[in-house]
Amino acid sequence: MNKAPFFWDKYSDQPSVIKDKAYKKAMRKKYIFDYVKMLFFSLLILPFAILFMKLFKGKNNFSNKEFIGLGVNLDKDDGNNTQQKLIEELGIKNLIIRVPLWDIKNIDSYVEFAKSFNEKSFKNILINIIQDRVHIENHKLLKKDLDTVFSKFNSFVSEYQVGTTINRAKWGFFAVKEYLEFFKIAQDLRDEKYKDLKLIGPSTIDFEYYYNIRAMFNLYNIKYDKISSLLYVDRRGAPCNTQYIFFDTKNKIDLLYSLCKLSPKSNDKIYITEVNWPLSNTAPYAPTSEKECISNEQYVKYMIEYLKIAKKSKKIQKVFWHQLIAPGYGLVDNREGKIIKLPQFYALKEVLNED
């Protein structure tokens, strides 16, 4: 990822904002027609999705342990099986693990890391394949490295989120068209060699469903086995806070489910693969400015509310909290080599045992 103008911020676990504004402008201008398509289909589809969103009823009814997942990362591995022990203590059964394509040379380390969580009890693992600009532009390289990922994990992982955060340029994609081509490479490879694997997308972040519409209503020969969304809510407040007058977390879920029901490219199975709140006084680890940050006590309250809303909707199959160890937004603080379980760690443990 550390190739200009894309640079990784190791503190907040995400790419830094692209500073080369001329490059960004040129890339967006290149795909202006794709933005026109997105606008056209959004104006066409959104009214129907909003109109019907309260008519579609959810049907999922999972226990908390089936419903809740958590992110763990190889780069937080300390050689002492700390994450593995924390996962066992929590009783988490669903894990999401990032595998960045730019680090494909270390794929065996990711495989061993993923396998290590199954030593005491079986875990359902979702591999989050993270793109970079090189793989977006070079389809031959993309196919080769996806083949490596699928072949290495195939024996014990069946679900893969193909790409992430497709509506943020700093993650590499400048148009949904680029993502659709990226996903089709993965799907064609799956159909050719790995027929039992499930591919999940399009992994938009926040409440920007016009990107979902472009990704879910198009003429590409693709189909998502499940829909993934990084459904963050108002960074400044509670899950019941609204955007665009009445879109709180519940209504955002209803609208996403409605899009899934209407789309020919998906079914109605949805994973929320990333959500959290940023923590006060943790800069530079917090992924936002201090203005958006909250206390641990607020974090606990909002986390519990969010999980209850998502589960009660019966429209979400799994919510993966992001993530286990992250001083600026997670459940455990590992600064200065110390492992400090934050109040949200214990709160999630309690929620998992409420069934």
Score class of each variant (00 low, 15 high):
Met1Thr: 10
Met1His: 13
Ala4Met: 08
Trp8Ser: 03
Asp9Pro: 02
Ser12Ile: 07
Asp13Ala: 15
Asp13Ile: 12
Val17Phe: 13
Ile18Thr: 07
Asp20Gly: 04
Lys21Trp: 07
Tyr23Asp: 08
Lys24Met: 15
Arg28Thr: 08
Lys30Trp: 07
Ile32Ala: 15
Asp34Arg: 03
Tyr35Pro: 00
Lys37Thr: 01
Met38Val: 01
Met38Lys: 13
Ser42Tyr: 08
Ser42Ala: 02
Ala49Lys: 06
Ala49Trp: 07
Leu51Lys: 13
Phe52Lys: 04
Leu55Pro: 00
Leu55Ile: 10
Gly58Leu: 04
Asn61Cys: 03
Asn61Asp: 13
Phe67Val: 07
Gly69Glu: 04
Gly69Leu: 10
Gly71Tyr: 09
Gly71Asn: 10
Asp75Phe: 15
Lys76Gly: 00
Asn80Cys: 05
Gln84His: 11
Leu90Lys: 00
Asn94Cys: 05
Val99Gln: 04
Asp103Leu: 13
Ile104Thr: 11
Ile104Met: 13
Ile107Phe: 04
Asp108Pro: 01
Asp108Ala: 02
Tyr110Asp: 07
Tyr110Arg: 08
Ser116Met: 03
Phe122Pro: 09
Asn124Gly: 06
Asn128Glu: 10
Asn128Ala: 11
Ile130Gln: 14
Gln131His: 03
Arg133Phe: 06
Lys143Asp: 09
Asp145Met: 08
Leu146His: 02
Thr148Cys: 11
Ser151Val: 05
Phe153Leu: 07
Phe156Ser: 01
Thr165Ser: 08
Thr165Asn: 07
Ala169Met: 11
Ala169Glu: 15
Gly172Thr: 06
Ala175Tyr: 10
Ala175Trp: 08
Lys177Gly: 00
Lys177Ser: 11
Lys184Ile: 01
Ile185Arg: 03
Ile185Ala: 00
Leu189Pro: 02
Lys193Leu: 13
Asp206Trp: 13
Tyr210Trp: 10
Met216Asp: 02
Met216Phe: 14
Met216Tyr: 12
Phe217Pro: 05
Val233Leu: 13
Ile245Gln: 12
Phe246Leu: 10
Asp248Asn: 14
Lys250Cys: 06
Asn251Asp: 12
Ile253His: 10
Asp254Trp: 04
Asp254Tyr: 12
Cys260Glu: 14
Cys260Tyr: 12
Leu262Ser: 09
Leu262Asn: 11
Pro264Lys: 15
Lys265Met: 13
Lys269Trp: 08
Ile270Glu: 02
Ile272His: 01
Asn276Asp: 13
Ser280Asp: 02
Asn281Met: 12
Ala283Gly: 00
Ala283Cys: 01
Ala283Asp: 14
Ala286Gln: 14
Ile294Gln: 08
Met303Leu: 15
Met303Thr: 04
Met303Phe: 05
Ile304Gly: 00
Ile304Phe: 00
Glu305Ile: 02
Ala310Ser: 09
Lys312Gly: 00
Ser313Met: 03
Gln317Met: 11
Val319Arg: 06
Ile325Cys: 04
Ala326Gly: 10
Ala326Met: 12
Gly328Gln: 09
Asp333Pro: 02
Lys341Asn: 00
Leu352Ala: 05
Glu354Lys: 15
